[in-house]
């Protein structure tokens, strides 16, 4: 792997209120190389979004990076001032979300929002910014960008809004794009359009991507490498082929067995029994032990290490 664009080390993010403190991201380590697409997968509440918000410096007030490093091209972002972080954000790093409406201003036209963003980050004239905006709108599939620029966000469909968000993110030429469930709210035929587009942009701009999703189908389609999270920790990481053809963590295996398919015999699904433990309330054991079909007494005696299984494959299981 070439030099890492992003390197996350021992990241720990906690939420505090008057009564309690909960560690929801608990010692995450991963790297994203140049032009790599790393998928972050796992069930609801496992800490995917909080990991990405930690990286972007966008945690809600009650949340805080309590430990660890987040290096972007070698520079540690943990402890940077709000101003310094926001300079990086939108310039070198950009993020798109599941629901574009949360990051679009409902009372401003698409054109105003786009040109403002472009001017802020690229420091160009208004005319120049409008040209950049049009260019990107065309590239995300709006042949008449002037018409879209005049629209308000609520007048566009979900798929159109997500393409606008993508154009806004791309207009600032980010080296790293963080996409948090960007197609989860879309219909599958529209999802196919947007995934196609993102793939095309990755190939053209050679940017790196952190792609968050809970859909293993989307992972197989988009990722070069996969990080599987469970209950705030990484349980397995491998290149995409290894992960799908020889998964080693019982959780990863369980996820694959419980996912229904479009091809092959419609066999009975194999669910993972039980449910995810409540966030931040973990015993000093393997966090998957209560649901694991292979669990042994040893699994409950210590927290298994994330161990190297060779070839960039890491697994957090005493049996693997």
């Amino acid at each position: 792997m070439s030099q890492a664009i992003l390197s996350v080390k021992a990241l720990k993010t906690v939420f505090r209120d008057r009564k309690s403190e909960r560690t929801v991201v608990d010692g995450i380590d991963f790297e994203i190389g140049s032009n790599e697409v790393v998928a972050l997968v796992g069930e609801s509440g496992c800490g995917k979004s909080i990991t990405s918000l930690s990286i972007m410096g966008l945690l809600p007030r009650s949340g805080e990076v309590a430990d660890g490093e987040i290096r972007f091209r070698g520079q540690n972002l943990v402890g940077l001032s709000k101003k310094e972080i926001s300079r990086l954000r939108g310039n070198k790093m950009a993020m798109i979300f599941q629901e574009p409406m949360t990051s679009l201003n409902p009372v401003l036209t698409i054109g105003t929002q786009m040109t403002e963003g472009v001017r802020r980050h690229l420091g160009v004239s208004k005319e120049e910014a409008a040209k950049v905006a049009d260019d990107w709108l065309r590239r995300v599939g709006f042949p008449e960008p002037a018409r879209i620029r005049r629209e308000y966000p609520h007048r566009l469909s979900g798929g159109m809004r997500q393409r606008v968000m993508l154009a806004m993110a791309m207009a600032c030429k980010p080296e790293l794009l963080i996409a948090d469930e960007p197609t989860t709210a879309l219909d599958v035929t529209i999802q196919a359009q947007v995934l196609d587009l993102i793939r095309q942009l990755i190939a053209e701009t050679r940017m790196s991507v952190l792609f968050i999703t809970h859909d293993l189908g989307v992972v197989a389609e988009m990722a070069t490498r996969v990080v599987v999270m469970y209950a705030g920790q990484i349980v397995e990481t491998a290149d995409v082929r290894t992960l799908f053809t020889s998964p080693r963590h019982p959780y990863t295996k369980g996820l694959l067995a419980s996912t229904p398919r479009m091809t092959g015999t419609a066999r009975k699904l194999v669910p993972i029994p039980g449910s995810v433990p409540p966030a931040g309330q973990y015993a000093a054991s393997c966090r998957f032990a209560d649901r694991c079909p292979q669990a042994r007494p040893e699994c409950r005696e210590q927290v298994p290490e994330l161990r190297d299984a060779g070839g960039g494959h890491q697994v957090r299981c005493i049996l693997a």
């Binding site: 469909s157 599958v188 196919a192 995934l195 992972v219 996912t259 091809t263």
Partner: peptide
């Protein structure tokens, strides 16, 4: 359009244009 959780899935994708 449904992405299959497999590498080397050989299904051909028909991407529709339009909304």
């Amino acid at each position: 359009s449904v992405p299959e959780p497999e590498v080397d899935s050989r299904r051909e994708r028909i991407v529709l244009s339009g909304e």
